[in-house]
Structures are given as C-alpha cells and as structure tokens.
C-alpha cells in the first residue's frame, strides 16, 4: 500500500466515524436538546432576567463600563462561546473504559483517541450549526451589537481553538476512569470552576482586582472572557490567549498520553 492509499484509507475511517457520531448524537433528539442546548439556554435566560432586574428601568446605569445592552451582548457571546467551546462532555469515553468496551479499540486498526477525536469533530459541527442558527435568530431581532465580520471570524477561529483545549481536558477526565469509578464528578467540578473563573457567569470586570490579577496567570479568562472581548471588537489579548491556551493544550495532551499508557496496563476488560 502506498502512502497516498494509507492516508486515503485513514481519512475514510475518520469520515465514517464522524458520520456514525452524527447519527448517534442526534438519535435521541429530546435528550440532545435537554443535555446540550437546554442548559445553555436556561443559563442565558436566568442571566438575562437577573441583569434585567439589576438594571431595572434605569437606562443610564453603567456597571464597570457595561450598560444593560452591553451586558446582554456580553452574555449572548458567552452563550455562543459556551456552546461551541465547552459543549462536548466526553461521556462515552469514561463509559467505554469502565464497561470494558475499549477492548475493540485494541484490536481494530483505529485508535481509541482517533475514534473519540472524530466523535468530537462530529459534535463540533452540530454545535456550530446550532450556534449559527441561534446567532441568526438573535441578529434577526436586532439584539446583537456586531462589530464586524473580521472580529467575528477571528472570534470563531479562536473559540474553535479553545474547544480543542476543552476536548483535551475532557479527554483527561475520561481516561481517569482507569482509576475512578465516577468521572462525571471531575467533569462537573471543572465546569463549575471554569464557569466561575472564566467570566461565564459575570464579566471579570466585576471581580476584585487582586483576583483578576491571579486569574490572568491561569487559562480561565482566555476560555470565555477574552473570546467575548474578541467578538465584541477587541483583539489586544488574542496573541497572549493563543500562547497560553496552546501551552496548556500541549501539556494536557502529553498528560493524556502518559495517563493512557499507565492506565491501559491496569485495564482488565470488564465483561470479557
């Protein structure tokens, strides 16, 4: 087999896995809506109502540079960033390990990580589609301040890059199933901490200065707060964000590799 044939063959495996994942993700549409889209929608709905109550009827109120419109815009972009970057849960990953289903990946000519990365890519396309529709609806009702296509496209690219970081992190929590009975706890912990520290609940401008100074040394602000800044037309943090997220993604990918190598030695193929 030539190198070209090998690449073509491998590509077809990825493509078919992506297609199968599409079918899997959308097979139980109600569950998909309630698990993935519902929480993001409710989160946005609560924040919209909360800020409406805070600003009340006072059009002149400005909180740390945010008037009501600016605050709602911030949360619309937070909704989009959350949907595209953080949606994938890697639920199946831990289950595959715990229930002994990874035995097949050890035999098939398609690795465990390849299968789950292809699944993630498939999931991302669905999320992008949903985010596009959501943005279309919001734009149709003229609720969105749109600074320009260049910022939008940079924002989308950056958010997709963050989703790679999230995937690496979720993958790590998944492979921890070699040691842990329940990995969902780690996933929930990660999401609770990152929601709070990334500016997904309230803009980091409202946090105490000492806390923001500390957070700037962590990846958290670059996951939600700075992407929103980009979508809002401010790209000064782009370079630093890319560097920090790249470093963290590479480090986590290396840890994933090591954890997998160590974990597979413990694997007992439950149910075989």
């Amino acid at each position: 087999m030539t190198t070209g044939d090998a690449i073509k063959n491998n590509f077809s495996k990825w493509w078919i896995t992506i297609q199968i994942s599409w079918v899997k993700h959308t097979a139980y549409r109600l569950n998909f809506f309630l698990q993935i889209i519902g929480p993001a929608l409710v989160f946005f709905f609560v924040k919209y109502n909360l800020w409406s109550a805070i600003y009340g009827a006072d059009d002149s109120l400005v909180i740390k540079g945010f008037n009501f419109e600016g605050m709602i815009n911030y949360h619309i972009w937070a909704f989009v960033v959350g949907l595209v970057a953080q949606g994938h849960g890697s639920w199946n990953l831990a289950e595959d390990i715990r229930l002994g289903r990874i035995s097949s990946y050890l035999i098939y000519p398609f690795n465990f990580w390849e299968f789950h990365t292809a699944s993630w890519l498939s999931f991302q396309t669905i999320q992008m589609f949903i985010a596009a529709i959501t943005l279309g609806v919001i734009a149709f009702f003229d609720l969105l301040q749109f600074p320009g296509w260049n910022f939008f496209l940079i924002g989308v690219a950056y958010t997709l890059f963050i989703s790679l970081f999230w995937f690496a992190l979720q993958y790590l929590t998944g492979v921890m199933a070699f040691w842990l009975e329940e990995t969902w706890i780690l996933r929930v912990m990660l999401s609770v901490v990152s929601y709070f520290l990334s500016g997904a609940i309230i803009p980091l401008d409202l946090y105490p200065d000492w806390l923001v100074n500390i957070l700037n040394y962590t990846p958290f602000p670059y996951l939600v707060y700075y992407p929103i800044k980009i979508f809002s037309g401010e790209t000064s943090s782009l370079g630093l964000g890319l560097i920090i997220i790249s470093i963290w993604t590479v480090v986590i990918a290396l840890i994933n590799h090591l954890v997998w190598k160590k974990g597979i030695k413990l694997y007992t193929a439950a149910g075989m």
Binding site: Y28, L30, N31, F32, L34, Q35, G38, P39, V42, F45
Partner: peptide, 13 residues
Amino acid sequence: IGINFLRMQMQQL
C-alpha cells in the same frame, strides 16, 4: 436521562 438535565435546569431557575 435528558429529564434529569431538565430537573437540574429547574433547580437553576
């Protein structure tokens, strides 16, 4: 399982 996520959203409200 989706109903459990619906429950959690109700709690959030």
